[in-house]
């Protein structure tokens, strides 16, 4: 179980201003919201990659911030994090990168290790023979993303945090990754949080959907409730057509502002 309790985080400006959320063990929750609202920041407070300014995050009842280094280490051991931009180690080959997801001290030359690496690559729809010995710089963006995913799942964490796992993937690979997320969950009962802009994926694979906006969760509920919500912001996210209308409205407002500014400037 993961509990976010009144999480605040500011950089130059406030980003999170009191997020409260509980994710049950075995649950899959998607977080959606406009770009730059702090979805990645929220995810990073779970395993201490960013420290909240105020509030607490508890994983299975233990705090990553108040219960000492040993607890933080234990939390990091059970939380797997899929980075938005893969964050592969660029001095290491694909194989070595994925090995880094295995427990410390495994020998990369042992047969079972290579088998695990190959299996993880196949799980993310990559051909092990082709990519195993490549460096990250030699991979496409979508391939990097999937290697990053493989590196996280190979260690079989109890909790998986996915930061935009399908953004930038083609439809076939998007479907493959969605299927993988669901398979992992069915086989191992992991708790997952998925940050995504792919609303269809979110509605399809999650038990609950949360909408982060202006530093707080504006909505948390089941996919059904999400789609039925009367809140205009939620509706803009739930419905492509409404999103498109919202975009047009924003652009029209911007254009009007610009026109007004120009009129004021030229007397």
């Amino acid at each position: 179980m993961i509990e976010y309790i009144d999480v605040h985080k500011a950089f130059d400006v406030p980003v999170l201003t009191g997020v409260n959320l509980t994710v049950q063990t075995g649950e899959t929750l998607s977080i959606v919201g406009p770009s730059g609202t702090g979805k990645s920041v929220l995810l990073k407070t779970t395993n201490g990659l960013l420290v909240p300014d105020q509030g607490d995050v508890r994983v299975d009842g233990e705090s990553a911030y108040f219960d000492g280094d040993e607890t933080l280490r234990r939390i990091r051991g059970k939380v797997g994090y899929v980075f938005q931009y893969a964050a592969l180690f660029d001095s290491m080959t694909v194989c070595e990168n994925i090995c880094a997801g295995l427990p410390l001290g495994v020998n990369i030359r042992e047969g079972w290790v290579l088998e695990k690496v190959a299996q993880a690559l196949e799980d993310v729809n990559l051909d092990p023979r082709q990519v195993m010995n490549k460096l990250p710089a030699e991979l496409s963006g979508g391939m990097k993303k999937r290697v990053g995913l493989a590196r996280t799942i190979v260690g079989r964490p109890e909790i998986l945090l996915y930061d935009e796992p399908v953004t930038g993937l083609d439809p076939v690979n998007t479907a493959a990754v969605s299927r993988l997320i669901r398979d992992i969950r069915e086989k191992t009962g992991v708790t997952s949080i998925i940050v995504t802009h792919d609303i269809e994926q979110a509605l399809e694979i999650s038990d609950r959907v949360a909408l982060l906006e202006h530093g707080v969760l504006r909505f948390v509920g089941t996919p059904g409730e999400f789609q039925a919500s009367p809140d205009p912001v939620v509706r803009a996210f739930a419905d492509r057509r409404l999103a498109a209308e919202a975009a047009v409205r924003i652009m029209e407002e911007d254009a009007a502002d610009l026109k007004k500014d120009m009129e004021e400037e030229t007397p």
Partner: peptide, 10 residues
Amino acid sequence: EQIDALHSLG
């Protein structure tokens, strides 16, 4: 974020 990745992998 490779340093973050190291942290997250323990």
